[in-house]
């Protein structure tokens, strides 16, 4: 009886179903994603496209209408010492902070993975979010206060152990070091959380089997854990690179790119070109060059480091 009913229902359903999907059925999935696509086009692709077009124009804000100048902005930017210096400073910041953040992040993640119970781990993971959640401008001001030459807690702490205070914000090397410290402090937790999430994907039975094989930590880490970590590490590399390249708020709050140009990172230089010199064409060319650099670096990371665990 049941079989006969099912067959009858199926027959009715088959009868009702048209041979081909209607136009509306075709369009439905597209209609669902359309708002997101439009939003993406409006806030993502259009500004990039517009910036690209403007980068081929001579446009000084408030002085004249944009006029086409082919590649002259790119030539000017690539021969401009201030911009190239700012790019070098940014890349140096990346080269210094990225390995440290990765190493510390990995260390913290492994500690969380092995040494704490579930509740403590959860609490520590929440604590790790705090530095990431602080607004860059507020973080910059905190750094400014903490590293103040005269009244800062850092020099006070150094003095208490007999070390002479450092002019953290007035000396060029010290100011750059301060920015490195702040960058590492803010973004190491991000690396820790991402790697921590990767560690959580390692099946416990594999870890237990590895422990039966050997009690030595390094082979277990290298052969068992690391293959699961590569996607997370690649994500950390890509994101941290983007964070360093677009770093603006914190550094601006600390010393506005100073002393002199010591902490003038590339985003501060682009802002300076666009809104202090009002040379929008050159600033657009600088932005496009940095976009290209970011994409190249991301592709390189993916090519070198990304691999799925077998």
């Amino acid at each position: 009886m049941a079989t006969s009913l099912d067959a009858s229902e199926a027959k009715v359903a088959e009868h009702k179903r048209p041979d081909r999907p209607t136009a509306m059925e075709h369009a439905t999935p597209w209609l669902f994603v359309l708002p997101s696509v439009l939003l993406l086009l409006a806030v993502g692709l259009y500004p990039i496209g517009y910036t690209f077009v403007i980068s081929f124009h001579n446009w000084t804000l408030g002085q004249a209408e944009p006029s086409f100048t082919a590649l002259s902005n790119y030539v000017e930017v690539l021969t401009d010492g201030a911009f190239l210096d700012a790019v070098s400073r940014t890349m140096l910041l990346l080269a210094i902070t990225l390995p440290i953040q990765l190493a510390l992040g990995l260390g913290i993640a492994l500690l969380l993975h092995t040494h704490f119970n579930k509740w403590l781990r959860t609490i520590l993971q929440v604590v790790l979010v705090i530095p990431i959640a602080i607004t860059p401008a507020v973080l910059g001001l905190l750094v400014q206060v903490m590293f103040d030459n005269q009244f800062g807690i850092i020099n006070h702490a150094l003095a208490s152990i007999g070390i002479q205070g450092v002019n953290w914000l007035g000396d060029t090397t010290a100011a750059y070091t301060t920015v490195c410290i702040a960058q590492i402090w803010q973004w190491t937790p991000f690396a820790a959380l991402v790697i921590s999430a990767s560690l959580a994907t390692v099946p416990s039975e594999i870890e237990e089997a590895a422990l039966l094989e050997t009690s030595r930590w390094w082979p277990r880490f290298r052969r068992v854990l690391l293959p699961y970590l590569w996607p997370g590490i690649t994500a950390v590399l890509v994101f941290q690179t983007a964070f360093v390249i677009k770093q603006f708020g914190m550094v601006y709050s600390i010393q506005k790119g100073g002393p002199g140009s010591a902490t003038q990172l590339v985003m501060l230089e682009i802002e300076r070109t666009a809104f202090r010199g009002f040379d929008i064409g050159a600033a657009a060319a600088q932005s496009i060059l940095m976009l290209v650099l970011s994409i190249l670096l991301a592709q390189t990371y993916i090519k070198l480091f990304y691999r799925e665990a077998a």
Partner: peptide
């Protein structure tokens, strides 16, 4: 002048 005057 004080050190770091270039930042002041």
């Amino acid at each position: 002048m004080p050190d770091g005057i270039v930042a002041d």
